[in-house]
Design a protein around this nucleic acid. Sequence first.
RNA 1: GCAUCCAUAGCUCAGCUGGAUAGAGCAACGGUUUUCUAAACCGUAGGUCAUAGGUUCGAAUCCUAUUGGGUGUACCA
Length: 593
Amino acid sequence: MNIEQHIVAATVNAVKELYHQDLPEAQVSLQDTRLEFEGQITIVVFPIVRYSKKSPEVTANELGEYLVAHIEEITAFNVIKGFLNLSIATHYWVDLFNSELLKPDFGKIAPNGRKVMVEYSSPNTNKPLHLGHVRNNLLGYSVSELLKANGAEVYKVNLVNDRGIHICKSMLAWQKWGNEETPESSGLKGDHLVGKYYVIFDKEYKKEIEALKLEGQTEDEAKKNAPLIKEAQAMLLAWEAGDEQVISLWKKMNNWVYAGFEIRYKNLGVDFDKFYYESNTYLLGKGTVEEGLEKGVFFKKPDGSVWIDLTADGLDQKLVLRADGTSVYITQDLGTAQMKYDDFKMDESIYVVGNEQDYHFKVLFLILDKLGKSWAKGLYHLSYGMVDLPSGKMKSREGTVVDADDLIAEMVATAKQKTEALGKVDHFSEEEKESLYYKIGMGALKYFLLKVEPKKRLLFDPAESIDFQGNTGPFIQYTHARIKSLLSKAGHKEGVEVDSKIELSGTEVEMIILLAKYPSEITLAAKAFSPASLANYIYEVAKMFNKFYHEIPPLVKEEDEQLKQHRLNLSWVTANILKSGMRILGIEVPERM
RNA sequence: GCAUCCAUAGCUCAGCUGGAUAGAGCAACGGUUUUCUAAACCGUAGGUCAUAGGUUCGAAUCCUAUUGGGUGUACCA
């Protein structure tokens, strides 16, 4: 039983003895004592005055007397308004530190047997990645790692959007204007090459539209009648019919893209347990539609199209199958959801997809629930906000995007320049330097994207490059490296407990309390699917260490062995938390920098 | 129109299931290095938590309305 549970139980007993009332445990509200007051743990007594029938001050004082008398570790109390601040004996914190935080498995949460699937990334094969996609990848990866850290068994999957009219557009443009250009001949990364032709298509298509408008067609007519779009549509039909030439072109170009993806995923440090390809799943879902018709969840209109009426749920009528019997987006997703469940039988399934699809997923989950799928309640759309530029939204076709590869290169270059300016790594080998610049650059980028709550839109200003100071990845990396250096210089011995009778400073007690929260912070962040919440905690830990480090005299010269060992222990635990916490965010921390 | 999300310091963001005087970073200003890494630390300044009501002993947090912004509302994906 930890001290908090002790206090809650004792408070319930106190109310029983003092006021002859049964106080529900949930009414005992504990919080950290604010720094300006004495004590470490505070009871908010307002909820208790209903039971004591006395003023908050009197109640707090009576409870304080009782707790000091009944809990050995409570040494003193003070009352400020309705707040009862409790001082806990230093030896309690040292004991806690020795017995829990110093253990090698501290921060490891036991497996809970839950299986969770996380789908993320889900790229198109016709355009290169921009910053918005980077957010998706980092978020998906780190949420997966977070859930793992919280004890779940996690499958990361990637549903590749490798077919459809948009892919045909790139293929067609390449066929017409590509002159057999390849990644090798052009020196372009595969996805960039394919993306280039997607842009060319759009440009030529727009020209045709303009020309048709001059001939007197309306915008809508021109869009439908332009020869290029008709050709692309014909190509899609040929693809669906299995036309050999089209398929082979499709394979060739997709393979270029996949080669590019591999490099990128490696650069980003993300991975997957399984890839699904839409070219294999796009026909799925028709069985589900049949099932829905049988169950009377769907209905058929006279033209043969199949619908669901969600007006009772505050939504609209939604088409689930076209009149010609072909699938729409949601048909596919119904089928894919079923397939994923059949594959993994997971308890929860997370879709990491931008917030422009909030409505789609609401409908999807509702339909699956209405179809009586027991697993539908485990579906969750992890919706995240757009990454905006100061000029507004990023649009791939208008070239107002921050290209992922460019940005990564830029971050690494900035890291190099900043590191060299500090002049601390001159004696590093070239390999170590390169690896360091990469870690720092990526650390800055990843932390920048992950520290913001997923739901919120994120503003990226290319003119003000991402910071390396303050609440940033490099700050945390630096703190870690600094601790590592300290530990080795001071000759730290791992896992050696110290006598609980040593004296601690206020900062040291605060630090133990903060460090002890690590497991519960993981759980909290995992429940909220929020790497941002963990990032915030890690930052607090790093900041706390720097404050501590600054306050204490140099440890290498410390003569009190117990004190020295304990301070090194504190540093060591801090470094471990920074490292494993950052790992959950997908960020590496260097041993020295 | 309807649905949905967002609004906190000049800028970028925290603020846990409602709890004390709303916190960080950046930018600005001042200070700290004969001592373990100054990518650090300490301090000053900066707020009508969009607005108005409501619930509550207590609201940035919950409810309602309003304003401003994003997104969605296709037999596109």
